[in-house]
């Protein structure tokens, strides 16, 4: 009995860590590139986007996990999309009501969470095969991993592009902002260099 309990807690830990680093959605699975490139010009929108993804991922994983035994195999993608779309719309309405500025900054990228591969990937690969507890932990791990990488990326870009972080100046007065880092080109360069760095630090282990 104790063995089994330890086994499941190990599994939980494993699942959580997988999302945070070993199978990090951005750096490892290279999923969800669209928001990764689009909303990381500053930390605040990146964080908001991350929270939305966590919310949607959590809800969709719970629902999918609950109905996993009822799913018809050839209709499952339809069900996943329906579930995800519902929660994305809720998240979008919530943002518009309580964070109108953020909703404006993020623009179409909140509705676009519907087609964010991370969520459908987790529904397919994890939630539709595992119990509720594992699905929830997986959603939290993946969601936090995604949010974390987004924030790191956005932090680098915001500091270089504006000299500020969370809209608070952090650079010395003589700093001249690098406008290119706030543009799409900055996203590609930063993401590329970071992926290179991640590959460099874990060469041979991946």
């Amino acid at each position: 009995m104790a063995d089994k309990a330890r086994g499941s807690s190990d599994l939980y830990k494993e699942t959580l860590l997988a999302g945070l680093w070993r199978e990090n959605p951005v750096f490892r699975l290279l999923l969800g590139m669209c928001p990764t490139l689009a909303v990381t010009a500053a930390v605040k929108p990146a964080l908001t986007m991350g929270c939305c993804v966590i919310f949607v991922l959590l809800c969709s994983n719970i629902i999918v996990s609950l109905m996993r035994n009822l799913l018809k195999p050839h209709l499952r993608i339809l069900m996943f999309t329906l579930t995800i779309a519902t929660f994305v719309t809720i998240a979008d309405l919530f943002l518009r009501a309580y964070f109108p500025d953020m909703s404006e900054t993020l623009g179409p990228y909140v509705p676009l969470i519907i087609v964010n591969c991370i969520i459908i990937c987790r529904a397919e690969a994890c939630a539709s095969k595992n119990g509720l507890a594992v699905s929830i932990i997986d959603a939290v791990g993946m969601g936090v991993g995604f949010t974390g990488t987004l924030c790191v990326l956005a932090g680098v870009r915001e500091v270089l592009a504006t000299g500020m972080i969370f809209e608070v100046p952090v650079m010395p007065g003589a700093f001249v902002p690098w406008a290119a880092m706030g543009m799409p080109v900055g996203a590609f360069i930063t993401l590329g260099l970071m992926l290179g760095l991640v590959n460099l630090t874990s060469k041979g282990r991946a």
Binding site: L71, L75, L78, M79, L82, T86
Partner: peptide
């Protein structure tokens, strides 16, 4: 398709 129809109904209500 009963699951799809039922859940679509409830999701619609939720929205």
């Amino acid at each position: 398709s009963w699951l799809l129809i039922v859940s679509a109904f409830f999701f619609g209500l939720l929205l």
